[in-house]
Design a protein around this nucleic acid. Structure first.
Lengths: 336, 336
DNA sequence: CTGTTAGCGCCTTCAG
DNA sequence: CTGAAGGCGCTAACAG
C-alpha cells in the first residue's frame, strides 16, 4: 500500500542519508558541487519514493511558477492548433509548462483573470479572447508577462501582435468587385456586428463597397461566421432572398466552407453563380472543390508570438512593450 | 506608479489596522465572528491595494488548489465544447477553477502527468486522451481525484465513464447492411488502426460484416477520420477504386461530412450511390443535406461526468471507484 | 471578537 | 562538499 501523503524533500533526504539541501541541489540540477555517488543515492531515493517537488511550495519560494498560460477564445480552429503547437514547443525549450484557459464569455474572462492574478502562471498569451477582457494593463502590472494577439488593444506593459486584416480583406474584396460582383453579402461573427465600426472585417467590407460605388445593403449583412451550422443556415436564408447575393464574404473559413455547401444545395454553382470568400486560411479550404479563396497568413506560424512571451519572461527587467504585425494576404483560389 | 510587488495579507492588515488573521477570515468568508465595521475596513483595504491571495501560498497551506483540470485530446470538436461547458458549470458551483491541458501525444501526456503530480490541480477529467497515458493508477494514488472517460481502462482509484460504442456502431452497421449495402468501407482514426482489435469501432465494423456473411476487404479499411481534410482525401481515394464502396462508415462526424462532400464531388449521390454513416452526433450533421446518420449521445451531456469528479472532491475519504455508462444510440437520418 | 504564532514544502544563503 | 536555518504568503489553532 503506497503512502497516503506525497513524499517531500525530507523523506528523500532521510532515505538517501543526506540533508534536504543536497536533495534540492540534485533535483534542480545544481549538482556540480555534489559528489557523484551522493547524487546517485539521492536520485535512487527520488525514484523509489516517486518524489516530485510540490509546485505550490516551489512557486511560493521562487516566486514564479515556471508555467505559462494560453488564453484562447474557443476550441475548434486549426489555426489555434498551430498556436498551441508553437507555444508548447517554445515552452518546452525553456522548461515551462503550458496550460490553457478557455474564455468565450466575459464571465470566463473574469474567471481567467482571477486565476492569473492569483499567480497561476508567470506569463500568458491571449488569442481570440481579448474582447472579453476589461483591463489588460492592470493584469500586466501584477507582474504577469503578457502577449495579446488583438487588433484593438494598445501595448501597456505587454506586447501586442496585430494582423493587418483590414488591408488584406480589402484587397480580396477589391478582387471580387473588380470581377463584376455586385451583390456581395457579409457573414460576420456576432462580435463583428456588435463591434460594428470597430470590426476590421466589417469595415473592410463597407469601405470596399463604397470604393466601387456600391451602397451596403442591410439585408446582406448578418451573423453566420461563428460556426459551420450558422454559416450554412445564414447562407441558405440569403439564397432564399428575392434578390440573392452573387458573392459571399464570410468572416471565417469554417463557415465559408459550409456556405459553399449551402449554395450548392440550392442548385447554384460556386463560383459561377455565387463567389465565396473566407478568412483564416484553413488547410481544409485548399483541399475541397472548389478550393476556397481566403485571407490570412499564408504559412500559419505563431512561433514569433511565442518568442515574444519567452523573451519577456527571460528578461531581468520588464522590457519595453513591443508591437509586431503578422503577414496577412489575400489567397485567391477557385471559389471567387 | 504602482508597487512592483503584489500586496500580501500583511499589507492589507497594516492598512486596515488589524491582524493578518482578521484579514484572512474576512477574505475567506469566515467572517461571522468579525465585527461589521472591521470587515468593512478590511474590504476597503483589499480594494485599495488590489489584493488577491497568492494561490501558491494558499495551496501550500491548505494542501489543495481548488482547481480542476480538463485533460483533453484535441481541440476542434463541439462534443468537447459541451464537456468544457458542463465542467465549468459544475466547477463554478463548487468554487473551483478550471484549466485545460491539451494532450495529443505521449510527450504531452508525460508533460501533463508531471504538472498534475506537481499538484497543479485537485482533480482531473481525462477525455479523448487516455490512450496517450501510461499508468493512471499511479496518478490517482498521488491524491488526485480522477475521472477517466475511456473504454479501455479499468477503475483503479478513479472513476471510469464508458460509452457503448461497440453496440451502437453495430446496430448502425446492421441497418446499413440490412438495406443491402455490400461494399462498406471503414475510415478510422489512426489510433483505431493501431489499436486494431482493441478499437471498438473497427471491431464493430468487422463483426457486423461477418454477421452478414461478408469478409472485410483490406482495401476498404484505412485512416481518414482524424480530420476533415483526411476524410475528404481518403474518400476521394476510395471512390477512385475500380470497385468503389457503396457505403462509408466514418469514425467521426466531422470527417463523415467531408466524405459526403467528396462523394458528391465525384458526381455520385448520397445516399443513392453511397451511404455515409458518422460517429459523434455533431449538430452540424443534422443541418446539412442530406442530414448525416450517426451514432452517439442523442443529447450530448457531460454533467454526470462532472458530477462524478466533484463528488469525489467533496468526499472526506476516497470513495469506491465507480463506473458509469453514457447512453449511446444509432441516430438514423438521411445519409444512409 | 481579534491577535499571536506555528508551520505547509521548498530553496538558498551562510557556516562548517 | 554538506548541514542548519530562515522565510516565501497564507490559514487555522489557540490565546487573550
Amino acid at each position: 500500500m503506497p503512502k497516503k501523503t506525497r513524499p517531500t524533500v525530507r523523506d528523500v533526504a532521510a532515505l538517501a542519508g543526506v540533508s534536504v539541501a543536497t536533495v534540492s541541489y540534485v533535483v534542480n540540477g545544481r549538482d556540480n558541487r555534489i559528489g557523484a555517488d551522493t547524487r546517485e543515492r539521492v536520485l535512487a531515493a527520488v525514484r523509489d519514493l516517486g518524489y516530485v517537488p510540490n509546485s505550490s511550495a516551489r512557486g511560493l519560494r521562487k516566486r514564479r511558477t515556471e508555467r505559462v498560460c494560453l488564453v484562447i477564445g474557443s476550441l475548434g480552429s486549426p489555426v489555434q492548433e498551430q498556436l498551441v503547437r508553437d507555444l508548447h514547443a517554445a515552452a518546452e525549450a525553456d522548461g515551462y509548462g503550458v496550460l490553457t484557459l478557455i474564455v468565450d464569455s466575459p464571465a470566463h474572462a473574469a474567471h481567467a483573470a482571477r486565476l492569473l492574478r492569483q499567480g497561476l502562471a508567470d506569463g500568458a498569451v491571449f488569442f481570440d479572447s481579448a474582447r472579453h477582457f476589461g483591463d489588460f494593463g492592470e493584469l500586466a502590472r501584477g507582474r504577469l508577462a503578457m502577449v495579446v494577439v488583438d487588433n484593438s488593444v494598445a501595448p501597456d506593459g505587454f506586447d501586442v501582435v496585430r494582423t493587418p486584416e483590414y488591408e488584406a480583406c480589402g484587397e480580396a474584396l477589391d478582387h471580387l468587385l473588380s470581377a463584376g460582383r455586385r451583390r456581395v453579402a457579409f457573414l460576420g461573427h456576432r462580435h463583428d456586428l456588435e463591434l460594428d465600426d470597430r470590426s476590421a472585417r466589417l469595415a473592410a467590407y463597407r469601405d470596399a463597397l463604397r470604393r466601387h460605388g456600391l451602397e451596403p445593403d442591410g439585408r446582406l449583412v448578418g451573423a453566420g461566421a461563428d460556426s459551420r451550422v450558422e454559416g450554412y443556415r445564414a447562407t441558405a436564408a440569403l439564397m432564399a432572398l428575392p434578390e440573392p447575393p452573387d458573392a459571399l464574404f464570410v468572416a471565417s473559413d469554417r463557415a465559408a466552407i459550409s456556405a459553399i455547401w449551402a449554395v450548392r444545395d440550392t442548385g447554384r454553382t460556386v463560383p459561377g453563380d455565387v463567389a465565396v470568400l473566407g478568412v483564416g486560411n484553413l488547410e481544409e479550404g485548399s483541399v475541397i472543390h472548389p478550393a476556397l479563396s481566403t485571407v490570412g497568413q499564408r504559412q500559419i506560424d505563431f512561433s514569433r508570438v511565442a518568442r515574444l512571451l519567452f523573451e519577456r519572461l527571460a528578461a531581468a527587467e520588464p522590457p519595453a512593450a513591443r508591437e509586431i504585425v503578422l503577414p496577412w494576404s489575400f489567397i485567391p483560389r477557385e471559389s471567387t
